[in-house]
Structure formats: C-alpha cells, structure tokens
C-alpha cells in the first residue's frame, strides 16, 4: 500500500487509463494547464498533450455534448464538470442525449462516456456549489451512477467507469480531495454493482454513499464501545444497485438506516427503502430510517451549513434512536 490523497488517486486512475488506451481523453474547465480545479489531472496535459487534455470554454451543455460526439465515434472521453451543481446547465446532453442515444438507436451505438463531478457541502461553497444531486441522475434510465467513498475506492471505480461502454456519472466528494488514504500499489479495479461491507455488525445496518460511508464507520466504531454492533455498507454504485447485500444484512440485523448527502425529500434513500421493502418487511424490528440533507438550499455560513447536512454525530444519534 501507499499513502496518497483522494485527488491523486483520481489522477492516477486517469493517467493509467490514458496510458493504456489512447482513445481516453479529458475535457473540461481548467483540466489542462492547472490540472483541474481540485487538482485531479495535474501533469496529464504535459504527458498526453493538449488535444487529449482539453481546457474548454465555460460551456457545460455543449462540452458534455462534444464528449458524447467523441464517444459516439470511438473515443472514451472523461468529461469533468467543475461542480455537480453544473449538471443543471448540461442536463439536456446528460439526460436526453447520453442516457438515451443507445436505447433510441435500438442498440446500434455505444456511448462510453464518463462524466466526473464533485458533490457535497462542508466548504462554505453555498447553495450553487455544494449540492449532492445523485437523485437527479439515478432517476434517468441509461446512466450508471457511482459514488466512491475513499481514495482507493475512487481509483478502482474510476478505472471501471472509463472502461465501461456506457455513460457513467462519477460523483466525487469535494471534502475528500486533500485527505490522505492507503491505496494499493499494484493496478486494480472495483466492479460496479457490488456493495462493500466496511464494518460488520448484528444490531443495525447502515447503507451509506460517498464519504458518509467513512462517517458511518466512525459512528459504528464509537457505538462498538457501547456494545451496539452496526454493519456499514458502502453502496459504491446507485446504478447498478446491489440490493442483495443490503437485503441480506437487514435480514440479519432487523434494522436499517440509509445515509446519503442528497436532499432527503424525494431522494435516493426513500427509493432504496421501498425497493427492498418486499424482501425485508417481515425481518424488520424497527421502521427503516434515513439521514440526508434538509430540504433547504445549502446555506453559506458554517453555523448554518453543518446544521443541515449529515455528519458522524447525527449518524450516531440516529442509530441510538432506532436501537432505543
């Protein structure tokens, strides 16, 4: 193992895939000369040239569309949106084009396109640079949706995304970029649709996404001390969703808490809860509960922002509430 940051892990995944396949290119705002707003493509323009690492104008809808045109004709573009919030600008190309072109063509074409973007609050970036919009994209048939937790997860999953022949929405948590993690030295990938149990337990299951997996694990370690054994599942991918791992865990624990930083209202946690209900209903000892971001625009002041997004303490508190 080696210790690198989450941003470096992303950069390594891009570098390895670009070295392996000359059809892999990067497009996006500031991905070239400065190596990305969050430093996830540092050095790649020097290594692969400006046509494979292209600084685009601020034209999100059309540079996603250019990515689609490239994917359509044989390339494997990785397009970066500087913030997931900018999905709103590019949504026609994401939802009406990338997601649907293969299906509408009756399977004639492939769209091997990866669209990367940071999600999440915690940096006082306020309402237009902090959202976790996974529900928007998971809702649209034809898109795969990936939410890595740690640096090692991000690297292995991003390599799988780039090699996938379908459009993949790859959502990185912006609070993780500068954190250091242990990452395997040798090359590896992580398959889609296989959730990962990161902490075992018998009393309650937490199904979590993105960096809330790490916070759920922290809460579980705290609860261990009190004799409450929590099983934490890293969902890794929302589409495809590994329901089986959640169902098997809930059958064992009888309790489920779903933790995701998206807005709680009409978000992914409600969908996950109901999609497994038939399988777990008679095993439940308590109602399924969830934690998410309150339904307000993300406020600027730390005094306000941290009050509306989930964290370790809130996860701990919610588990205590359910276990009683």
């Amino acid at each position: 193992m080696k210790e690198i940051t989450y941003a470096d892990a992303i950069c390594e995944a891009l570098d390895e895939e670009m070295a392996k396949d000359e059809n892999v290119i990067l497009l996006g705002e500031d991905v070239g000369i400065i190596g990305g707003n969050f430093k996830t493509s540092v050095g790649l323009r020097d290594k692969y040239g400006e046509w494979r690492v292209k600084d685009t104008p601020i034209s999100e809808n059309s540079f996603v569309g250019i990515g689609i045109g490239c994917a359509f004709t044989g390339l494997r573009p990785v397009v970066e949106l500087m913030f997931a919030d900018f999905l709103a600008i590019s949504m026609d190309q994401v939802a009406n084009q990338a997601a649907k072109l293969r299906y509408m063509s009756g399977g004639q074409v492939k769209v091997p396109l990866t669209i990367r973007m940071p999600i999440g609050g915690g940096r006082s970036s306020a309402a237009q640079h902090s959202q976790s919009l996974q529900a928007w994209v998971a809702h649209i048939p034809g898109l795969k949706v990936v939410l890595p937790s740690t640096a090692a997860e991000a690297k292995g999953l991003l390599k799988t995304a780039i090699a996938d022949d379908n459009p993949v929405i790859f959502m990185e948590h912006k609070m993780e970029y500068n954190k250091k993690y242990l990452v395997p030295k040798e090359e590896y990938t992580i398959p889609f649709g296989q959730a990962n149990i990161v902490h075992e337990g018998e009393d309650l299951t937490i199904a979590a996404t993105s960096n809330l997996v790490i916070k759920s694990k922290e809460a579980a370690q705290e609860l261990d001390k009190e004799g409450i054994k929590v099983e934490v599942i890293d969902l890794r991918t929302l589409v495809p969703l590994d329901k089986e791992t959640i169902i098997n865990s809930v059958k064992k624990t009888g309790r489920l808490l779903i933790v995701d930083e998206g807005y709680l209202n009409f978000g992914i946690s409600g969908e996950i809860a109901l999609s497994i209900m038939n399988d777990v209903f008679y095993y439940l000892d308590a109602p399924i509960m969830r934690l998410g971001t309150a339904s307000v625009p993300l406020p600027f002041s730390p005094a306000l922002e941290f009050s509306v997004i989930p964290d370790t303490k809130k996860i701990y508190g919610k588990v205590k509430e359910i276990v009683g």
Partner: peptide
C-alpha cells in the same frame, strides 16, 4: 449519428465527432 428530438442538441454532438476526427 442520429436525428434528434431536442432542437439544437445535435450541434454539440456533431462538434464532438469533429473533435475526434
């Protein structure tokens, strides 16, 4: 590379095909 039901949506896709070439 496809007809398109969204007005103007094919323009970036065509531009992307040009980028590849």
């Amino acid at each position: 590379l496809g007809a398109n039901g969204i007005v103007g949506a094919g323009i970036p896709i065509a531009t992307g095909a040009g980028y590849k070439s």
